[in-house]
Design a protein around this nucleic acid. Structure first.
Lengths: 356, 356
DNA sequence: CTGTTAGCGCTTTCAG
DNA sequence: CTGAAAGCGCTAACAG
């Protein structure tokens, strides 16, 4: 009696017993090895047996236990992704692109966000390592200075591909756009529109993306004989709130600047809103350009001149490169891919008719 | 000589041999079981031995092989997420919220998107099952009519929580907002602003979110003695492109409608842009309201009246509920959580001064 | 507190 | 084409 009750409790708390290849084997009076072979696509099994195996599996509700097979095979079929934040327009595009490619190739995707914190990034990396990912895609956190937390992977022969926020040595595979050149073009465009006092809103200079955009801005000024003025560079976190603060700073500058080039759209859009509220005319009083081509950039009035740079595509390219590296593993090459971008000129910067 | 070369090739192609607890055990002259215990946080190991184990592990670059431990423990510590699309503002918020909670609790997150396709959704579910997820979070695809592809999980005692796009039987745990009530409030607000001919832009009526919003709209009309007119309901995919098309249809209606209530912001924003371009004044000629509080809703001019409904929070709540269900597993309860929303009134609908 | 032992479910030689 | 057997790395009784 006592025993019976225990048994019931036992049944209640434990999930139903898993169906294994042994169960199928027993039912069909064959060996587990044959079942295993039959379940795979490879040749080397009698067609008929194979069919019987497949049918029995379906009927019994068999689902391969991926842990057992991964343990055995030493391949996880998992790709890990670590990004600074998941809730940004750009990143969600990238992730969608990655998911597309990766799931087409029948890999599983595990994702985590560093929240711009190197400690958490390292923690995620360790978790990914324990999960024995076959490859890793990383966009670095705001404050990541070294990448030693990824060295394990490289030692172990697991490829790591950085994208967008990449690490600047030439030893690791990386995907990015030419931020320097893009910023140079935007700034030149503003200059051609007659701007002479151009403010630059930028972010943490430890990061390639912001540092390169800053350099492009600076060089464009120099090449057009416009003196660079450090006071016209505003470094912040580039959030919406930072944009509003930047606007206040701009309004206090004397003489008033006649152009703004920001390293992202989100920030400059709220900056524009404040400038407009304070009575400035865009682009007549002050021309504006951003970076990223966020959806908002063609909603705000006037529409924002910006750099278009396709996140979805970047995700796809990164995933493809990673998978390529996975197949020729061991050779940890440092291929870099520079993607195209596009300068989109809209009203916010157009002071001389239509051409740039 | 020959042998040597082979050896080199061998070393090149294979990843370095994994460090296992046996290696640590051998080095320390203790048993693997002790190492295993030492590595865990549990009591029952000599402090000193534990320290030696930890040190050796760090020194040797040991990383627990999660597959072996998962195979043994029959717990994966993995939570699966299936959503229609990853690249939407709302979903990326939800995912960020989920990631936050889940990673706090030391779970791994695996993510896939159904691309609004039930077949792919079922495929993802099967992959999740093979990965033996401990719990599953799902927002259903556009064309998902039945949820039998999730029955395995339930049979096996793995909790499944639906969110936002939920399944309408009361047997499964679900998180959502009261779409009916929210739509009722928006519509009532438009009526109170003097609208009498209100167009409704909506999506697939198989989905709870759109069907409920439609019902709320209809009921509000009825309760205010406004006749419901089927011709004023436009069903589409609710994309930006669909919004522009809807605008064209609206412009052809006679007499011209004086209000638009859309089941999402994205769609109604491009609709507004077309209406504005055609010379209509918002809200004077036609008042507009949306749903979701996308970032664009406070950039467009006039700012858009909408329903705010926090994706990040929904993600957190869904993850927490799931984890709760995981702990009391076996009892597959069907707890439903109805989250709050907020009607945000902005200029796009304000025709009578400030109050609603 | 520590060691011995068995086994999670699967794959893969190696023989037949 | 199929079966027997070993083992991937880890953990949990159980016994000491």
């Amino acid at each position: 009696m006592q025993k019976n009750i225990q048994c019931i409790i036992h049944t209640m708390n434990k999930p139903e017993k898993e169906v294994t290849i042994y169960d199928i084997a027993k039912k069909l009076n064959i060996s587990a090895a044959t079942v295993s072979r039959g379940l795979q696509d490879r040749a080397g099994t009698n067609k008929d047996t194979k069919k019987r195996i497949l049918d029995a599996a379906a009927e019994m509700g068999y689902h391969s236990n991926s842990f057992a097979s991964k343990l055995r095979n030493k391949r996880s079929n998992i790709i890990g992704v670590i990004v600074p934040r998941l809730n940004s327009v750009f990143m969600s595009q990238v992730i969608a692109g990655i998911e597309k490619e990766v799931s087409n190739a029948n890999f599983t995707l595990i994702i985590s966000q560093s929240l711009e914190n190197m400690k958490k990034e390292a923690g995620s990396a360790a978790a990914m390592y324990s999960n024995r990912v076959d490859g890793l895609l990383v966009s670095l956190a705001y404050d990541t200075k070294s990448i030693e937390h990824f060295e394990n992977f490289i030692k172990r022969g697991t490829p790591v591909v950085f994208f967008d926020r990449v690490y600047e040595d030439k030893k690791h595979a990386a995907i990015y756009i030419d931020n320097y050149k893009a910023a140079y073009e935007v700034t030149t465009h503003l200059i051609e529109q007659g701007c002479k006092r151009i403010v630059h809103l930028t972010g943490n200079q430890m990061q390639n993306v912001y540092a390169d955009r800053f350099k492009g801005y600076k060089q464009a000024l120099t090449d057009h004989q416009i003196p660079f003025n450090e006071d016209m560079v505003i470094i912040s976190g580039l959030s919406s709130a930072d944009g509003a603060i930047a606007a206040e700073q701009i309004l206090k500058m004397k003489p008033l600047p006649d152009g703004v080039f920001a390293a992202n759209d989100q920030c400059v859009i709220s900056c524009m809103q404040v400038l407009k509220k304070e009575g400035l005319k865009i682009p007549e009083d002050i021309a504006v350009a951003g970076f990223n081509n966020d959806p908002v950039s063609c909603i705000i009035e006037p529409n924002l001149t910006t750099i278009n740079y396709k996140g979805y595509e970047m995700g796809q390219v990164a995933a493809k490169l990673l998978m390529e590296l996975m197949y020729k593993k061991g050779a940890h090459s440092a291929e870099n891919v520079v993607l195209n971008y596009e300068l989109i000129i809209r009203e916010s910067s157009l002071r001389n008719g239509k051409k740039s």
